[in-house]
Design a protein around this nucleic acid. Structure first.
Lengths: 333, 333
DNA sequence: CTGTTAGCGCTTTCAA
DNA sequence: TTGAAAGCGCTAACAG
């Protein structure tokens, strides 16, 4: 592989002159520039930005450490991140942790070693040391999708609490009392907040005795299993609040197996849109967070922090959510 | 940020000794090792692998350059790539080209500059110079999902031709004659191969006069538009072969709008599974390629090429496809 | 078992 | 407008 020295020798100039040409910096005469460019083309020279980064301390690389690229919500979010990063000249490492704290730690260590300029993190658990680890290396960090109490850090997330409140209230206003919620893992703030929003709405309407909550995982399998479990009991709900889209799909599948019609026998509502490519039947009533925009916003904040490392202001940007009524709640179309 | 020198000074040893400790290489006495590790912990030292890479010429990084992480097929494939890479100690850059040759070129340039150890590429077009560009830098390369005629390069893809033949023959055996195919872009080999498989099956059964093909894009929007176009004509097909899952979803949507029942009025078959999370109704008869395994296989080949740069054997690994009959063809359940 | 020297490829002084 | 020297953080090669 040709180096800057090879190009310099071929063009009969000093390496620094080649550097000036490829970086468009400093003064270079047009004649010189042409001569250098000719040598670059001849040799097929590709600058080694590792060496550059070693000096400049900037890699133009960020990392997105999150649960799973395969999850429809994070999938779109990831695209928002990549597009935004690319437009600003950054490449991005994608790291799937599957909510596993060990994997998260490993990835953080790896990307810190690779000197990424910044990290976008969806933390596996609320009380992880990840934030301290990253900030200890003075690496800019933005937390995505989840709360992060007691830390001085930028956060971009959706309004899980408010959204859950809205969805629950919608069901109550439609006449439901027996409303069960199937949630995510206890350690995850979105799961907690949606649970809390549900509880608050139930209490606000005097339905505390009907509160029926089930922690689980944000997966289709979990939605299916818990739904079956719920309907094996004597008291059966007339409505189910699935805490995310994957759980909702699992719930729909279980209800189908049980011969229960949606929304006639059981109403179903959920958090997060199902990808537009694929509308399940019945179409789902959801509270939607805008994943692409969340990815974009978080990346923008991260890049601005990278460019101004001195600022010690921190922002918690909470995206408002959007209630979309469709067939599954029995109120929409 | 602490460097290897800081650690060395604090431990009262030479930098190389620290290097030996962190790399577990060469001889270091236990006492020394402990002393060094203590200093590492105290300083919160994180090795700078950029500097290491500059020496070793290895970054333990690969790039996946493909159309779109948001596409269900590539989404799963990407996970296969990331998992496999991670297990072998590699990080991966994800690059979305949207089938745009310009973006592809930009990304290739960028990741070559970043000295990636290898590249996985889903080329936007058949006749691109990308392969030459990458091989010109002696960077290992595996082509994914698509043919790449006349190039000496490893390829991992599915059997588009055979799969299309099977799907078409299935429809013919069910009694269909008017079978239309909605394909992808002409420059993409998978689109071409599926078209060819369709044609061959039609001819093999004496149905050349019924051949009706439409090139387009591998998107839902395109599937919808072309389906509408098809049914505005006088001669209407009794079956539609959608060349991928996104087109199929668009086709289903259009048929729904037209008040046509699937499979009673029109049978529909397609390439690639719709993600298991989301089963459309009616469930689709498809020929499936295994995206996760394709990602894994390609990454394995790439890593083996990275480890043995001298081998000049090239492999074209064609995954067999899997016909899954479901409701939409009128033959399955 | 531990240390010295030199250099990976580039760019930031500073000088000409 | 061009160049020389030094060094970013790490490690291979060679000594000791």
């Amino acid at each position: 592989m040709a180096t800057i020295h090879d190009v310099a020798k071929k063009a009969g100039v000093a390496p620094i002159t080649v550097s000036r040409v490829i970086n468009n910096s400093g003064y270079v005469s047009d004649a010189m520039r042409e001569r250098v460019n000719a040598s670059i083309d001849e040799l097929g020279y590709v600058p080694n930005v590792l060496a550059r980064s070693l000096k400049s301390k900037r890699t133009n690389t960020i990392a997105l450490i999150f649960t799973d690229i395969t999850n429809p919500f994070f999938n779109i979010l990831a695209r928002g991140v990549e597009d935004t990063a690319h437009n600003s000249g950054y490449n991005v490492f994608f790291c799937n942790t599957d909510e596993d704290q060990e994997k998260e730690n490993t990835y953080i260590e790896l990307v810190l070693q690779k000197q990424v300029d910044g990290i976008l993190l969806v933390p596996a658990s609320l009380n992880s040391k990840s934030v301290d680890m990253i900030q200890g290396q003075d690496t800019p960090l933005v937390i995505l999708d989840r709360r992060c109490p007691d830390k001085k850090v930028d956060i971009v997330r959706g309004d899980s609490f408010g959204g859950a409140f809205q969805l629950t209230e919608l069901l109550i206003n439609l006449g439901h009392k027996h409303i069960s919620i199937i949630g995510g893992p206890m350690e995850v703030s979105t799961a907690e907040d949606r649970m809390a929003g549900y509880r608050k709405a139930m209490r606000a309407h005097g339905l505390e005795d009907y509160i029926d909550f089930h922690y689980g995982k944000f997966t289709q399998v979990c939605g299916k299993e818990i739904t079956h479990k719920i309907f094996r009991r004597d008291f059966k709900p007339t409505a189910i609040f699935a805490a995310n889209n994957l759980i909702a799909i699992g719930t729909l599948a279980a209800l189908y197996e049980l011969g229960l019609k949606v929304p006639e026998d059981v109403a179903v509502v959920s958090f997060d849109e199902v990808p537009e490519t694929l509308n399940p039947i019945p179409s789902l009533t959801v509270v939607n967070q805008p994943p692409y925009e969340m990815g974009r916003k978080a990346t923008e904040i991260l890049i601005s922090r990278i460019k101004d490392q001195n600022s010690d202001a921190f922002e918690e940007y909470i995206f408002p959510v959007d209630l979309i009524e469709r067939a599954s709640s029995g109120s929409g179309i």
